[in-house]
Write a protein that binds this DNA or RNA. Structure first.
Lengths: 288, 288
DNA sequence: GTTCCGCATGAATCGATAG
DNA sequence: ACTATCGATTCATGCGGAA
C-alpha cells in the first residue's frame, strides 16, 4: 500500500497552520515534559506549561475530524518534593477549550528506570489521556483484543519454567511479538491499563515512548489509509509505526537533529518493507 | 501486643472533632465515590463532591502528625460519556488547604468489573494519592520490599502449574500472603504501581479494597503501636489490618450495618489470632 | 492430599424505556 | 427535554464439591 508521510521542521503551533480543518483521524503524541530535555527543546517551565500547550491543542482541535481522537501521553514532574499540578490544570484547560475527556489509560512501564530515593519509589507509570471532539468517535476494539487469562493458564503447561515467566508477561500485556500466533485462540477485550516495556536501546535519541504505545492506539482508533498526526514527532516513532501499519502520517519537529533522524528512518523503511514483501512471496513460492 | 481500636458511629466530619490534634500517624481511606453506593450512603453528586470532602480533609490535616501521611483511594466516574473532573479539582483543593501532594500510586485491579461498551474498555485501575503535612514524613521502605525475579523464578519450579500462575502475580505485586517466608531472600524496592485483585468472595462484608492495599501502606508509613485512621471505615478492612499488624486504629462509619460488621470482626479477630498462635506452637512441639 | 471443574460475584457503563 | 430505573454485556478470582 502507498502511504504518504509528511514531515515538517519547525514550531508545532506555526506548522499546524498548514494543516487543513477536519483532516486528521488520530493525534497521538508525547510532548516534551515540563523542564525536561532542556538542551533539546529549551524546556518549558512547569508553571507555564499549560499556557504554552493550549494554543497548540486548539489547533489540534481544528485539524481533527469529528470522528477522530487525540491521545496525549504525559507525566507530572516532581517539583520541590511534590508532584506538580500542570497536568491536572491542562486537563481542565482542554475541556474548557471544547475537548471531551473520554478516558484515561495508564501506561505501566514494566522496566522503568532504576533508582532509589529516601521518600519515593521508582516511577513506573504515565498518563495516557484520550480526548475527543464528539461522542461519536471511531473505535475498532477488535483490533487490540488479547488472549484470555484462562487460555494463558492452560498454555503454560507446555512450556519450560523460564518461558513461563517471560510469556506470562506477554500474555498480560498483549504486546508480545508472536501475538499473531495466538489469534486463533479465545480472546477478550483489553482494559485501560497498558503493560509495555520501555525501549532502552535507542542510541541516537532520548527514548520517548516504545513503538507498542502508538501502535496500540493507531490500531484502536484508525483504519488503513487514515491520517495520523504527531505534533511532537521526535525521532519519528509514531510515523514509523503509521507507515508500517499502512496509515498516512504527518509529523512536526522543531529540532533539526531529530527531524533528520525521523526523515531518514522513514525513507529507509519504504524500500525495506517492499523488500520484505518480495522475499516472503519468493519464500512461499519456493516452498510450494 | 495490645493495641486499641476505637470505632465511631456517625458522620465523619462531626466525629473527627473528637480526635486530638497531631495524634494520627497514617490516614488511609477510600471515601464513597461520587454517586456510588447510593443505597448505603446518600450518594454525593459529582458536581458537589469537592465541597463535601474539603471540610473533612481539613480535619484530617489537623489530626495528622507532622510526620504522618494521608493515603486517598479514589476514581473518576463516567458522567455523560466523559470522565468527571471532581478528582482533579479535589487535588487542587487539597493543596490550597495546605496538603503537600507527594506522590500518586496506581492500583492496578487485576480482576476488574467485566462488561463491553462501544466507546471504552474495562476500567482496571484507581488512583491512590499520597498527601503529606510536611516534607519530613516517616517512610519505612524496607518493609515493603519484594523478592527478586531470579529467586521467584527458581521457586516456581517446585510448585504446581496452577500455583505458578497465581504466585507469579503475587511475586510481581509483592502482596502474597506468604511474603514473610521470602524475607530472607534477595529483595528489591517496589514501584508506584500496585497490582492487586479485588476481593469479591467475601460474603459477610463487601470491602471496597482488598486487605493488601491498606496493609502495604500501613507497613510503609507506620511502625507498630502507631495510630492509623480510616474516616470512611466501611466494614473495617483498614482497622482489621491495623490490628493484625499491631498498630492502633480509629475508624468512623456512618452506616450502622457496616459499623456493626466492623465491630464484630475486630472483636473476633483477637481470640482467633491467639488461637492460631497456640495451635502453631503445639504443632511445632508435636513435631519435635 | 491434589487437581480440576463449575459457579457466584463484583466502586461498571451504555442504551432503551418509563415517568 | 430531563432524570430515574433496568437489562445486557463481560471476565478474573476464590470458593466448594467432585474425581
Amino acid at each position: 500500500m502507498n502511504t504518504v508521510h509528511k514531515l515538517m521542521l519547525g514550531d508545532s503551533f506555526e506548522k499546524l497552520q498548514d494543516i487543513e480543518d477536519n483532516s486528521i483521524d488520530l493525534v497521538v503524541t508525547s510532548p516534551p515534559y515540563a523542564d525536561a530535555r532542556k538542551k533539546t527543546y529549551g524546556g518549558t517551565h512547569p508553571d507555564h506549561y499549560v499556557e504554552w500547550f493550549l494554543p497548540i491543542s486548539k489547533e489540534l482541535l481544528r485539524v481533527l475530524k469529528p470522528t477522530g481522537t487525540f491521545i496525549l501521553n504525559i507525566k507530572e514532574r516532581v517539583s520541590d518534593g511534590e508532584r506538580h499540578t500542570y497536568v491536572l490544570e491542562l486537563i481542565l484547560g482542554l475541556r474548557k477549550q471544547g475537548w471531551l475527556w473520554t478516558e484515561e489509560f495508564i501506561w505501566h512501564k514494566k522496566n522503568c528506570y532504576p533508582g532509589k530515593w529516601p521518600n519515593r519509589f521508582r516511577d513506573a507509570w504515565e498518563h495516557v489521556f484520550q480526548f475527543n471532539k464528539t461522542k461519536k468517535f471511531h473505535m475498532y476494539q477488535e483490533e487490540v483484543m488479547i488472549p484470555t487469562g484462562d487460555w494463558a493458564r492452560s498454555r503454560l503447561k507446555k512450556l519450560s519454567d523460564k518461558d513461563k515467566i517471560r510469556d506470562e508477561s506477554k500474555v498480560s500485556s498483549g504486546f508480545g511479538k508472536n501475538i499473531s500466533n495466538w489469534l486463533n485462540r479465545e480472546k477478550v477485550y483489553p482494559t485501560n491499563v497498558l503493560h509495555m516495556a520501555t525501549e532502552c536501546g535507542n542510541k541516537n535519541h532520548s527514548a520517548v515512548f516504545p513503538e507498542a504505545l502508538p501502535e496500540w492506539f493507531i490500531k484502536l482508533f484508525t483504519q488503513t489509509e487514515d491520517y495520523v498526526l504527531d505534533p511532537f514527532m521526535g525521532s519519528g516513532t509514531t510515523n514509523r509505526v503509521a507507515q508500517r501499519l499502512d496509515r498516512n502520517s504527518v509529523g512536526i519537529e522543531i529540532s533539526p537533529e531529530y527531524y533528520r533522524i525521523a526523515e531518514q528512518s522513514l525513507r529507509q523503511a519504504a524500500p525495506i518493507s517492499i523488500m520484505t514483501l518480495i522475499k516472503e512471496k519468493e519464500y512461499t513460492k519456493s516452498k510450494n
